[in-house]
């Protein structure tokens, strides 16, 4: 390089916050050396919504409406996590039917969320057909959600003490039809992508993180399991009766993009297994605790109304 009279220098490029491949608004200040990224400084906060401040002015039950919009791809998980926390504070538990339905909608939600991931990743890597397939199957799940909750996104369906309403007539048949459809479709994605040289070149060995780094940087979920760390809250700290369901936690060792892709595909299959068990367990019964079991005054339980400095 020196002989040719060229200098090595890095180029600073600003990527985002409005960039087609950020999906969500993230800005990255990249230092590039040719095509290699030397350093990356992420800038976040372009979607800071102030949900915490708003919920201070609301009742506990109203809080569900806010947290469901926190991660709009997995609303049921947000709602359930929030409701479990409030229920632990109150010392109550949702009735068994509500627990089973919670698990069912959460696992369907997991599939929908993974499908968006798969679809957009496919779009980024040039597999545009994957985008169409992924969102097509997601629509099937959204139709089930709409039937059950009345909304496609932001359901506010899981409430403190149970659910906002019971499953409607025909919902079980609809889920069963989906369970018949989906395994073939997941197989289709795998056939389409796993062997594709383009897909493999852009995922195998890319972005690998070691298990130690994952722990130090606070990474969890499928990313951690793709690095060989078996840590799944459904197994380690079960909630909503997950310990009684029969499913496996998929693990890979490599920790790269391809391992994460494989883990997520396998997780979708395991979710289907759990949903099937949920359907078999649905027995008639109450889906929400009676109002007397939830010990708060009817007027307002917000922080403001109780606050006496």
């Amino acid at each position: 390089m020196e002989d040719l009279g060229l200098r090595e220098e890095t180029m600073i490029i600003n990527m985002g916050p409005q960039h087609p491949s950020t999906h969500g608004v993230l800005r990255m200040v990249l230092a590039l050396d040719g095509e290699y990224v030397v350093s990356c400084r992420p800038v976040i906060g372009y979607l800071h919504t102030g949900i915490e401040k708003n919920t201070e002015y609301r009742t506990w039950q109203q809080g569900v409406t806010f947290v469901t919009r926190a991660d709009y791809l997995s609303p049921f998980f947000n709602e359930t996590a929030y409701c479990l926390a409030v229920e632990r504070l109150l010392g109550i538990e949702a009735p068994p039917r509500a627990q089973v339905i919670r698990v069912m909608v959460m696992e369907l939600n997991r599939i929908a969320s993974h499908l968006v991931w798969l679809a957009t990743t496919g779009l980024e890597l040039g597999a545009i057909s994957m985008m169409l397939y992924g969102l097509r199957e997601r629509e099937e799940i959204l139709r089930i959600f709409e039937m059950v909750t009345g909304l496609r996104l932001n359901h506010a369906y899981v409430r403190v003490g149970g659910l906002s309403m019971d499953l409607p007539d025909g919902a079980v048949d609809r889920v069963r039809a989906f369970l018949k459809l989906m395994p073939g479709r997941i197989h289709e994605y795998q056939e389409l992508l796993s062997g594709s040289p383009i897909w493999r070149q852009r995922t195998v060995g890319i972005g690998s993180v070691s298990p130690e780094d994952m722990l130090a940087l606070g990474v969890t979920g499928p990313m951690m399991r793709a690095a060989g760390v078996s840590w799944d809250l459904r197994k380690e700290e079960p909630y909503c009766g997950y310990e009684t369901y029969d499913f496996e936690v998929p693990l890979r060792e490599a920790g790269d993009c391809f391992a994460r892709y494989e883990v997520r595909l396998e997780e979708m299959r395991q979710s289907l297994r759990i949903v099937e068990q949920c359907l078999d367990r649905l027995t008639p019964g109450p889906w929400v605790r009676t109002a007397s079991a939830i010990p708060w005054s009817t007027s307002s339980t917000s922080w403001r109304s109780r606050w006496r400095p």
């Binding site: 102030g50 915490e52 401040k53 708003n54 201070e56 002015y57």
Partner: peptide, 8 residues
């Protein structure tokens, strides 16, 4: 903003 004396 999340200090209690900051307005909503």
């Amino acid at each position: 903003p999340l200090r209690k004396d900051h307005p909503l």
